[in-house]
Design a protein around this nucleic acid. Structure first.
Lengths: 193, 193
DNA sequence: TCTATTTTGTGACCTGGTACCAATATTATA
DNA sequence: TATAATATTGGTACCAGGTCACAAAATAGA
């Protein structure tokens, strides 16, 4: 059954490229014991782009993702901000934020959104998180859009009490109270930003 | 002064490629108003590899990094783990984890380390964070090494109480109490992973 | 054995380069 | 101002890792 061989090879090929996207057609041909032409045909039939395209795709996506989780001061997209009063950010749950097994967002992404909003609400050069008391009300899934709303409820000297509520549609998914500190000197004690 | 033009272009070129690694020599040539040959010479002198090498480098690195920051179940390096009892992870504060202004670690990295440890301590396919009550005791700076230690203090049915303490040397930087839930069915309510 | 499918090979072409060489500016200074 | 040094440009041959189109060979199934 020739077509079975082919079909099986297609499945195997797809998987092989999936978890090793940096193989050339030649390497794949050797691995599957067929000619390079066959691999090219297979790729064409499966709609799998060539090595350079794959590499480029991985690089571009990762380049963006790393920049967004690694460097941004604010996680999520700013919708509204009145410093010292209240603000809203919106975060779309991407593929990379969910665990593989469950399709559930990992807590630190939601925390990051809320925490960076809390900090953005305070008008000072350096703001650090003092303490957090929060509850995750329900899991957030891939594709959902989380809207975090924060409000400064109290302020005494350099200490700020902030309430954050994150919702998907109208359902609360995270609720918590932050205490953050505005610092003057960078080397001061208390908290993490 | 020809060499000055050249030198300036070299600096600009290096910077341009730095924050836009996906430019071809032709694009760069147009941007700098010189020929492609000149760009090639410049790259050779500066030791900057060609587009495909750069793309490949970004992709490979990011492939690893994303796997670790985006997909890894655990943030930080595992030092010790007795599931259901206690465990320790160690996280070195990298350049990308600190805010630009203050040289202080952003809270969500410390949270992510602690949170993922809390989850790892529970023996179940799917574990979600229910609530967190934590305090950041002092800022953590670039280069410091954070050691998080977690301990399951109580367990009733699928509900686990976990205590986490993160230290730099012997100084506590984060302390908190987690409540996490072990789930059977993926679609259950309560919490975020 | 015959036919349809699958596999392989071939040649022309593409991008984004390397490596090298010669010609042509441009510039600094004797 | 002429000349030597330096910088820039253009051209050729070559490479990897492909695309696309087509023909030929191998093989399986009836």
């Amino acid at each position: 059954m020739t077509r079975h061989h082919k079909h099986e090879r297609h499945l195997a090929l797809r998987e092989e490229i999936e978890n090793n996207p940096f193989s050339t057609d030649e390497q794949l041909a050797r691995r599957f014991g067929v000619s390079v032409s066959t691999i090219r045909l297979d790729r064409a039939e499966l709609g799998i782009p060539e090595l350079q395209e794959r590499t480029r795709a991985v690089a571009k996506e990762a380049y963006g993702t790393l920049k967004s989780l690694g460097e941004a001061e604010l996680i999520g997209e700013l919708r509204e901000l009145r410093i010292g009063e209240e603000g809203t950010t919106v975060l779309k749950v991407e593929e990379s934020m969910v665990l593989t097994k469950a399709r559930v967002t990992r807590g630190h992404h939601l925390f990051a959104q809320a925490n960076s909003l809390a900090i953005a609400l305070v008008d000072a050069e350096i703001v650090v998180t003092g303490s957090v008391d929060m509850k995750f009300m329900r899991p957030v899934h891939f594709g959902e859009i989380v809207s975090a709303h924060g409000k400064v409820v109290k302020n005494k000297d350099n200490k700020y009490w902030i309430e954050i509520t994150s919702k998907v549609d109208d359902e609360v998914v995270l609720a918590g109270n932050w205490i953050v500190f505005a610092l003057d000197k960078p080397a001061q004690r208390k908290g993490a930003n």
